[in-house]
């Protein structure tokens, strides 16, 4: 089926530019008998569901768990979550496509989110992002993205490397950052947010 022609930069709703196959039956809640779910994923999802008065609240933790296992929210991952949570894959896909941290396409397993929002960009984040992207190159292990404000403007410009906040970063830190990720070492230990003291001079220890 051909794509629906859209004006350049038309709707930005994710998935809106992909035409649905209207001939296909909508997917139903997967049958547990024919949907194998890895035991650890099943137990992670079930534990998450137990934490809430309404088990459906566990969609985000469940999709996170599935993404960790599969690398992204693949149709297979969505199917498995849907099977355990007794929801339709379409419902879960609608949730997965809403959130920035849930990937709806295959990505590298190491995420490097470079904050390029206002406070960071005032301190050179756009150049930093380009430098990180160039340094990671075509390496399929990396998922380098520019990200909206990560809430660490005190260490601007900064990045979140596999969930670890580092900053302030200059172009000179980029090779080390990439190297640390590749070697599986803690990323730029001296620049990690966890080591930073409060800026308020009277706060103290």
């Amino acid at each position: 089926m051909s794509a629906i022609p859209r004006l350049d930069g038309g709707s930005r709703a994710p998935g809106f530019d992909r035409a649905a196959d209207l001939q296909k039956e909508p997917a139903e809640v997967p049958d547990p008998a024919t949907t194998p779910v890895p035991a650890e994923l099943r137990s992670a999802i079930e534990q998450a569901m137990e934490r809430y008065p309404d088990p459906r609240s566990a969609t985000i933790p469940a999709l996170h768990a599935a993404q960790e296992l599969h690398g992204w929210c693949s149709p297979e991952a969505i199917e498995q979550v849907a099977c355990v949570m007794r929801l339709t894959p379409a419902y879960l896909e609608s949730v997965a496509s809403f959130y920035d941290m849930l990937e709806t396409a295959p990505v590298g397993r190491h995420s490097v989110y470079v904050c390029t929002n206002i406070s960071c960009s005032l301190r050179g984040a756009d150049e930093l992002f380009e430098a990180v992207r160039a340094a990671a190159g075509e390496d399929p292990d990396f998922n380098v993205r520019s990200f909206e404000c990560l809430g660490a403007c005190d260490i601007a410009p900064m990045a979140s490397v596999d969930g670890v906040y580092v900053g302030p970063l200059g172009a000179e830190d980029v090779p080390q950052l990439i190297e640390d990720v590749r070697a599986g070492r803690p990323v730029l230990p001296e620049k990690q947010l966890v080591r930073r003291a409060c800026a308020d001079p009277e706060a103290g220890a």
């Binding site: 459906r56 566990a58 969609t59 985000i60 996170h64 959130y99 920035d100 941290m101």
Partner: peptide, 22 residues
């Protein structure tokens, strides 16, 4: 409850929908 990256979930009713798994 850990969110998944959406500014709108700081808006209180958006937050509630997100917390309900939507």
């Amino acid at each position: 409850h850990r969110g998944a990256g959406a500014y709108i979930c700081g808006e209180e009713t958006g937050l509630l929908d997100s917390l309900e798994g939507k």
